[in-house]
Design a protein around this nucleic acid. Structure first.
Lengths: 234, 234
DNA sequence: ACCCATTCGATCGTATACAATTTGAACAAC
DNA sequence: GTTGTTCAAATTGTATACGATCGAATGGGT
């Protein structure tokens, strides 16, 4: 057993889906470090299920880009390369302005209230200290983008954004410097304000800059300590 | 055994991946009709593998949206609703202009040659008769869009487009009227010409219209007979 | 002391076995 | 003739078993 990551919930009725979600959360929350090996037997033991279900979960996560499965070697928490990170953010730059315009078409009062509520929560976390608050903050930041995606009513887009946000969280956890998120929060607020005003062009521009800022705040030099293992993997 | 869909290849060394690809091709080529049940045992028998591998393949296809897996009932070739179709094309409208701009940044002489070659093949198929040529034509049309995506050098985008094109093919096969593809071919050529001239704005506009035309040429009235079952599935 | 071949343990890949659920049909009641 | 119920066959869900592959440790040779 390598990692102690499983929530101590009573593991009743766990199926592939819940295992997938649990591991996914653990990865995005960075309770599982990139590069960590996810042995089928170990994970199965943690959840009291057979390798069959674990394999299914790992395969799904591999499809989302959160874990890499190497043939005959096992599954590892993804360790996004700087190039991968660049591609992820390039993709977000490409689709998020469109999401914003599409979402705006469908937004009513209740949607704005919901966004404002998310932002308040985000701000609250920003002023807290500690690892846990930091994690929650990263997640909350992603939730904002996911909320916009869900407001498009487009399930395909929503799935794409799910994947992009999850992988972004991983990248931020890996390469992110500290000061980032605070400015991100202000930018979220500005975007909502622009949408409310009906100034979508401005909102899109702000969104583009926002993504630029997130990416610019990464330090993607190769890396912290354990990268030697990673370099010679393969 | 319900369907006779497997290519009669000598099924040596088939693994999950190849099963997935074979079924995927069969679906996109419409050798497997939407709604067809893909029984694990039957598919396994066709490929001479156990249900384990078949399950993996079906799960992957489910993630791509080509197959619906219903718990305790089995896997079925996807039967995209008009709403799903709309979402797929909305997403393509959103990202393909961006792909085009990104691809253009990386394109050199050899890339143009490759695109021209694809277009020639496409034109050749257009002038042929018969089901087989029609299928090949739909596939070739998709290949054009995939080729552009691959030229971005962005693996994430490429995967998204893979999925979108595959699902589009299914939708076209389902709801497409006949005359469509011929005008699509001309539009592909125009887009390449615009890119070559460096007029990206024009190329993007043409791409947007191209996607509009594809979608406009679908007849998405609810449907051919068996849709009652579909309506009350779930 | 270093290098290469061999062996052994651990882990994955695939097949099979068994339990749980669904489905369709036969049959009885209205 | 239709509706409701019971039961058997078929199909999926999950676990386990066994063979295959990889990696590290071991040992002999130079």
């Amino acid at each position: 057993m390598k990692t102690a990551a499983a929530p101590a919930e009573d593991q009743i009725d766990v199926s592939t889906q819940s295992i997938r979600d649990a591991i996914r959360d653990a990865i995005v929350d960075r309770r599982l470090a990139p590069g960590t090996k996810l042995s089928e037997a170990d994970v199965g033991a943690l959840f009291n299920v057979s390798r069959t279900l674990v394999r299914g979960a790992l395969q799904a996560l591999s499809y989302e880009g959160l874990v890499n499965v190497e043939k005959n070697r096992g599954a590892f928490v993804a360790y996004p390369s700087p190039e991968e990170a660049r591609q992820i953010f390039a993709t977000r730059r490409m689709i998020e302005p469109g999401i914003l315009r599409e979402a705006a078409k469908h937004m009513g009062l209740s949607h704005f209230q919901y966004l404002r509520q998310l932002l308040m929560e985000e701000g609250r976390l920003m002023n807290e200290r500690g690892q846990m608050a930091r994690r929650a903050e990263i997640k909350a930041s992603g939730d904002f983008h996911l909320a916009l995606a869900s407001m498009t009513g487009n399930a395909v887009l929503q799935r794409f954004m799910d994947e992009l946000v999850a992988r972004s969280s991983l990248v931020i956890a890996l390469y992110g410097q500290s000061a980032v998120s605070s400015c991100g929060h202000q930018e979220h607020q500005d975007i909502v304000t622009s949408i409310e005003r009906g100034d979508l062009d401005r909102a899109c521009q702000q969104m583009a800059h926002h993504i630029d800022h997130i990416e610019a705040d990464l330090d993607m030099r190769e890396n912290k300590g354990s990268d030697l293992r990673e370099a010679f993997r393969r």
